Computed example of a mutant assay.
Amino acid sequence: MTQSHSKSRQTAEIAFNSLQAPFFAKNHAMDELEAITQSRDAKTQRLREARQAKELADQAAATSALLAKRNPMR
């Protein structure tokens, strides 16, 4: 069932929608930026944890090598 509205109502709705479109576009853009920021922060955290784990493993390997060099018979 279609409703027919007066010409002035149709004009008003078109004007209202044209004002609302930029508002919703701005919100959508902000949501996209927030998603990008969260994604970047998550990746940075993963890389930081991987780097710290590698540094810890390298430090342990260096310590083991130093101890093996110091006491070769043990």
Rank of each mutant, 00 (worst) to 15 (best):
M1A: 09
M1Q: 11
T2M: 09
Q3R: 13
Q3C: 01
S4N: 11
S4D: 08
S4H: 14
S4W: 12
S4I: 13
H5T: 13
H5Y: 15
S6C: 05
K7M: 05
S8G: 02
S8H: 10
S8I: 15
R9W: 15
Q10F: 13
Q10C: 06
T11C: 08
T11W: 11
T11Y: 14
A12L: 08
E13I: 14
E13H: 13
I14Q: 07
I14C: 07
I14E: 10
I14G: 02
A15Q: 12
A15H: 12
F16S: 11
F16Y: 15
N17M: 12
S18R: 12
S18E: 14
S18V: 08
L19G: 06
Q20C: 04
A21E: 08
P22E: 00
F23Y: 07
F23T: 13
F23A: 10
F24Y: 11
A25P: 01
K26P: 00
N27S: 08
N27M: 06
N27F: 09
N27Y: 07
N27H: 12
H28I: 06
A29W: 04
A29S: 09
M30T: 02
M30I: 04
M30Q: 13
D31Q: 10
E32Q: 11
L33C: 00
L33D: 00
L33T: 00
L33S: 00
I36Y: 15
Q38W: 03
R40N: 04
D41V: 03
A42Q: 10
A42L: 12
K43N: 08
Q45C: 05
Q45G: 07
R46G: 02
R48Y: 13
E49W: 14
A50N: 07
R51N: 10
Q52A: 09
Q52R: 14
Q52S: 11
E55A: 06
E55Y: 14
E55S: 04
E55K: 12
L56T: 14
A57R: 12
A57G: 06
A57Q: 15
D58R: 05
Q59P: 01
Q59I: 10
Q59C: 03
A60L: 09
A60N: 11
A62V: 05
A62K: 06
A62P: 03
T63A: 02
T63C: 01
S64L: 02
L67D: 08
L67I: 00
L67P: 00
A68C: 03
A68V: 03
A68L: 05
K69S: 01
K69L: 01
K69D: 02
R70N: 04
P72D: 03
P72R: 04
R74M: 02
R74C: 03
R74H: 09
R74A: 02
